[in-house]
Write a protein that binds this DNA or RNA. Structure first.
Lengths: 241, 241
DNA sequence: TATCATCTATAGCAACGCTATATGAACTGC
DNA sequence: GCAGTTCATATAGCGTTGCTATAGATGATA
């Protein structure tokens, strides 16, 4: 009834599905509800999206692009670790604003169905962490750091969604966020006992590794660079004893 | 066909549902499948559990009790923080062993439906953290620490479940685990903040160069090292990033 | 034996995801 | 202009789903 006029049926289906999903409070949304709200009959849905899951995937993808756009918008503060904090907060806020969408995206991840979104989110965070690594602020490989931070970020967001909105305590988020960033950064003076073997060699290697991959240095041939990076990797992943 | 004899129908339903859920690989399990496997007709299910969701809740509750039992079993190592690590690992292992059950428990948490399980899991971890707090090893309130650690624990477990089993890297778990524990503990040493300055590519290369020459790294052969250092020199004397 | 509560089975409803088939609209080549 | 082709939507209905109204079977109690 709401999406009658102007828009093409495909868009109307997407919007109807998104709206019903957002207000469904966990209850399942039927294709009949969606098509009725979109002012369309069943085969139209299957013509455009093939599947109910196909439609939901499209909704999720649209939501994810909105999320990514939010992540990219306020990036360049000059302080990479500060940007990571904002990314984290933006992630949490996205989840709290669209809990149902978020639960579909990150709550139901199955190995065979869609690690794609997770991979994209990881890449986004890794990209940012690379800048921190270049600046020598990172303690571990950007990829590992990104995976770790994102995992904690998702966990915190899910926990906050699970709480009644009234008693949501965002301190859980900031505390976990700072704990993760702190643990991954070189800001900490000298780490835990078992961690203390991580000398400046490793930090420097990580930084150089990230820098080399980012800027295509023309000082080395591509074959040289490949070997060089391999050695760097060996060094930077070795001394975790 | 499998759960014919001896057991009462209620148990047979529980086991059939658990088994089908465990092997469902994300696909939905129908009440007809369950009742057929249990050797029972539909109304029996609704007599005992009221609902399909009621049955699933019962399965989850049983699974959760198994999880809690696992958490409580190996507790008293004397070192509370070490016990926390084992709790974390046990949590992850439970999720990887029973991914479908875990996803129902922690992946679909909605505010109105069931923060009960989360609250129990939090209480379990808080109880353990209390011992650490008593021993002066804690940096924050046990409750806040428990919530934070559990959130990260859930996030990591979900991420690992989302990955194909072949390429699951448990380092993500140990790394995040230690990062969280480290952040809430008082173990962090006061350190040597002399080198906290921001380093560019060049600085990183120089630092690595120096460090490599100082510490005879055994990660590279001597000839490799020579070539490596030469390249490093080329890079570090060339560009200003 | 009669009574009563507990448990299970027969049969079937409304709603679900989805599709075989047909109709209309819009563009193509002549 | 107009036949041919393709895309987009509608009609109608199939098989399955979660669930239930009703009634029969069972065991304990009196």
């Amino acid at each position: 009834m709401s999406f009658d006029g102007q828009l093409p049926p495909k868009m109307r289906l997407l919007r109807a599905a998104a709206e019903l999903l957002a207000n469904s409070a966990g209850a399942s949304v039927s294709t009949r509800q969606i098509t009725q709200l979109a002012g369309v009959t069943a085969p139209t849905l299957y013509h455009h999206f093939g599947d109910k899951e196909g439609l939901f995937d499209a909704v999720v993808t649209a939501g994810f692009e909105e999320y990514v756009a939010g992540e990219r918008d306020f990036a360049p503060s000059g302080q990479p670790l500060e940007d990571i904090r904002r990314m984290w907060d933006n992630h949490v806020q996205f989840g709290l604003n669209q809990p149902e969408l978020y639960l579909v995206m990150f709550g139901n991840i199955r190995p065979e169905s869609r690690p794609a979104i997770v991979a994209d989110a990881e890449a986004l965070m890794e990209e940012m962490l690379n800048k921190a690594a270049v600046a020598g602020q990172l303690n571990v490989q950007p990829r590992e750091a990104a995976r770790s931070i994102l995992a904690a970020n998702v966990g915190v967001t899910l926990m906050l969604i699970a709480e009644p909105a009234a008693e949501r305590n965002l301190e859980l988020s900031t505390m976990t966020r700072d704990a993760m960033i702190f643990a991954v950064s070189t800001e900490q003076a000298s780490g835990t006992p078992e961690d203390s073997g991580k000398s400046s060699v490793v930090v420097a290697a990580i930084a150089l590794n990230a820098a080399l991959q980012a800027s295509h240095s023309d000082q080395l041939s591509s074959s040289e660079l490949k070997l060089f990076l391999e050695w760097l990797h060996r060094i930077s992943t070795s001394s975790t004893s």
